[in-house]
Design a binder for these strands. Sequence first.
RNA 1: UGAACAGGUCGCCUUAUCGCUCUCCUCAACUUGGUUGGGAAGAGAGGAAAGUCCGGACAACACAGGGCGCCAGGCUCUGUGAAAGCAGAGGAGGCCCCGGGCAAACCAGGGUCUACAGAAAGUGCCACAGAAAAUAAACUUCCUAUGCCGCCGCUAAGGAGGUAGGUAAACCUACCUUCGUUAAGGCUUCGGCAGGUAAAGGUGAAAAGGUGGGGUAAGCGCCCACCGUUUAUAGCGGUGACGUUAUAAGCAAGGUAAACCUCCUGGGUUGUAAUGCCAUGUAUACCGGGGUAUGAGGGUUGCUCGCCCGAUCCCGGAGGGUAGGCAGCGUAGAUAAAUGAUAAGGGCCCGCUUAGGCGAGGUACAGAAUCCGGCUUACAGACCUGUUUUAUAA
Length: 127
Amino acid sequence: MKQHGFPKATHLKSKKLIERLFKEGEKVKGYPLLAVYTPIEPGASTHQAGFSVSKRKFKHAVDRNLLKRRMREAYRLNKHLLPGGEEPKLAIMFIYLPAKAADFMQIEKGMQKALTHLAYAHKKENT
RNA sequence: UGAACAGGUCGCCUUAUCGCUCUCCUCAACUUGGUUGGGAAGAGAGGAAAGUCCGGACAACACAGGGCGCCAGGCUCUGUGAAAGCAGAGGAGGCCCCGGGCAAACCAGGGUCUACAGAAAGUGCCACAGAAAAUAAACUUCCUAUGCCGCCGCUAAGGAGGUAGGUAAACCUACCUUCGUUAAGGCUUCGGCAGGUAAAGGUGAAAAGGUGGGGUAAGCGCCCACCGUUUAUAGCGGUGACGUUAUAAGCAAGGUAAACCUCCUGGGUUGUAAUGCCAUGUAUACCGGGGUAUGAGGGUUGCUCGCCCGAUCCCGGAGGGUAGGCAGCGUAGAUAAAUGAUAAGGGCCCGCUUAGGCGAGGUACAGAAUCCGGCUUACAGACCUGUUUUAUAA
């Protein structure tokens, strides 16, 4: 398996799961991002990730697409920070917070921070 | 060569690394079809993909009929197109410039613009300024013919003409001539009231035709001439919009229909969140209330009448379940939505600079969501064509 791949199966797509995520998910901050996560029901084979940018803060579709692409790229290159192994897999939604577009460096930094925090919190919960 | 305007075309590129979506081929694992993973090849945002404003394709539901509503279009001819629309040539009108004219809602020429049916069916609105913003009326000014009152005078007052002066005119003053009138009544001056007038009021985008003359107490298209203009009828020219001439009746109906509206023409309704299929789960159960073959309820284009079907239906409480996939859907094609990220280099533009060069400089507007054809709007920069114009060089 490719180390940095991001195939379709690891996209967060189920409407039901997303609804549940926003309802009971835990929050971890890594400015300029906010990660909301929750364990998936047992049986899932991978983590699932989704990305969101507010339509109110960015009016044009072009800007939203750019930020989502940058977030996705940052997740793809840094997802090895997440816990692997046998623990239950996670559904994570990354939300872009500020009203101004950030460059890739800032977003990657925030992503690393969020993933590290997330892994630590997740480990603690399980032990 | 520069600038402005109009029309058209294009609207960043290369390499490396790591990735994404689809098609197809291949290998491996599990295997009934197939699923998962690795690898190779190919394809992968726009001129506007946008706004969702029109027209169609496609789909579903309809398709006895009447009425109301809703939407779109609105000068003529020709070409093009499935239509919407677009293009060319014209007609009419608005605005601007220049000339003619004392002037005008005047005439001739040029440029430019027009969602260009109707403002003479009705309603609404028209800031500021202005007396007044549209039926008119009031105010200021003008008049005192007509009616009334008061006052003055009759040695008249006053009107008309002449002369002189201020001052050329208007106007005023003085003088001369002439007209004019005498008390139960008459005349006249001044003032007031009633009355007449919309002509004058310079503001405004717009003020109810213009000029000259007659007429009038003063005025008014009240009357006349010329000019302009509206409607109707007829003739002539033009495929036509329309133009032009004559006659008759007029001189108002200022703007706004991209306010409602009226007229004409066209349009079944709803839009891919349509719609069809598969899978999954179900409760025609329970409690309370109500309606019902004297027709509940449903269907019928947005509403209504009408028409058709027709025995269960509606409201509240408590509770149960689904919300997944495929087709629709495309040699881009998803469904929390691919077409990217990073690094290096190069174009182009900008700024600085001695030529070389330098720079944390700029590189727009903006991302498919069923598909086509239009319209509108946004846009750094580059190129081409045409017109106008200025300067420089040869």
